[in-house]
């Protein structure tokens, strides 16, 4: 039995709208080992959330559609399962938490009920037993158990997110997908929530995909990093490899646009240009219009995966040895 809890192969997901076909995910490949934390990094619109929703097959349909690819979880291809089988996986073996805690909880149900519901459905416990477990989960995330009868609006943002985490981990999933879980929170609360998540992950050995655009959070919490651009993973490495030796011009650009505590820089170097229009992606390498190293060949040829070293992969023509010898990185 392989070490990998999740393997995504060549995933293609489109949204079919009146204004054109949005190519949200284009041939995405990704693997994740048990208990590992993968950071999925990229700007808004890179396809991160769509990828996450695809794993749980929650892509809104219409207009979204998973066109092709395979998603292997614990040996099974999720894309071949029936809806009923998927439902028994959601919230049970794979859980997902979303960005905005303020709107993620049902305003007319108590938090206790919302936590207990998943337990009741997946673990076949009675309502009372499930509620007891819900109380335990609340304590686990640092909320007094008496508050189970309270409604979401009676909690602060940070506490709401804890409730969301409690719901997600209630059935002890082997994979947790967290889509920008701290973006909507204050920085201090952010730190608390991240720490909570780390502790719980260690205790239950949950694998996690953490979607974020914040490299700082990645540095704190992740073992591996996948950088997404225009629906593809363009660089994949361990944390150390990525931070010490980034290869893809986009990744390097990302680092260049963060202020550093160590060196003084005259100006921050943002990456010029904008994210490409997903209904009208550039030919060849999707990054070439913004890339300072781009040459004519980048317009014509799509990069394939190049292995830099063990565990470090990149999709860039520079490393395929097909570019004219102008730059050496």
């Amino acid at each position: 039995m392989s070490d990998n809890i999740l393997e995504i192969k060549d995933l293609v997901v489109h949204y079919i709208t009146d204004e054109g076909v949005v190519e949200a995910v284009n041939g995405l490949n990704m693997t994740l080992k048990r208990g590992e934390t993968l950071g999925l990094v990229g700007e808004t619109g890179a396809g991160k959330t769509t990828t996450a929703l695809s794993i749980l097959r929650l892509v809104p349909n219409p207009p979204g559609k998973i066109i092709s690819g395979e998603i292997h979880f614990d040996g099974e291809n999720l894309l071949e399962l029936s809806e009923e089988e998927m439902r028994s996986i959601r919230g049970n073996k794979i859980s997902m938490i979303f960005q905005d805690p303020m709107t993620s909880l049902n305003p007319v149900m108590t938090v206790g009920e919302q936590i207990a519901e998943g337990i009741e459905i997946h673990q076949g416990l009675s309502t009372d037993e499930a509620m007891e477990k819900a109380h335990e989960m609340l304590e686990l995330v640092g909320i007094p158990r008496e508050r189970a009868i309270d409604y979401p609006h009676q909690f602060s943002g940070g506490m709401k997110q804890r409730v969301v985490i409690a719901i997600a981990l209630a059935c002890n999933p082997s994979l947790l997908i967290a889509d920008e879980p701290t973006t909507a929170l204050d920085v201090t609360i952010q730190a608390q929530v991240l720490e909570l998540m780390r502790n719980l992950r260690e205790e239950f050995n949950t694998a996690m995909i953490l979607i974020t655009h914040d490299l700082g959070i990645v540095a704190e919490t992740c073992d591996k990093v996948a950088v997404m651009y225009a629906g593809e993973v363009i660089e994949y490495a361990t944390l150390e490899q990525l931070f010490e030796n980034p290869k893809h011009p986009y990744t390097i650009g990302l680092f260049g646009s963060i202020p550093s505590l160590e060196h003084d820089v005259e100006r921050l170097k943002p990456i010029k240009g904008l994210m490409p229009d997903p209904t009208n992606l550039p030919s060849g390498c999707p990054f070439h219009p913004r890339c300072s190293h781009a040459q004519d060949i980048c317009k014509e040829r799509k990069p394939i995966v190049t292995n830099i070293e063990e565990g470090h992969m990149v999709k860039c023509l520079i490393y395929e040895g097909v570019m004219e010898a102008k730059e050496v990185l």
Partner: peptide
């Protein structure tokens, strides 16, 4: 369309 409906579906609720 609300987020909490998405949360419910992500929990595996029928």
């Amino acid at each position: 369309r609300q987020d909490y409906i998405r949360t419910a579906r992500a929990k595996g609720v029928a």
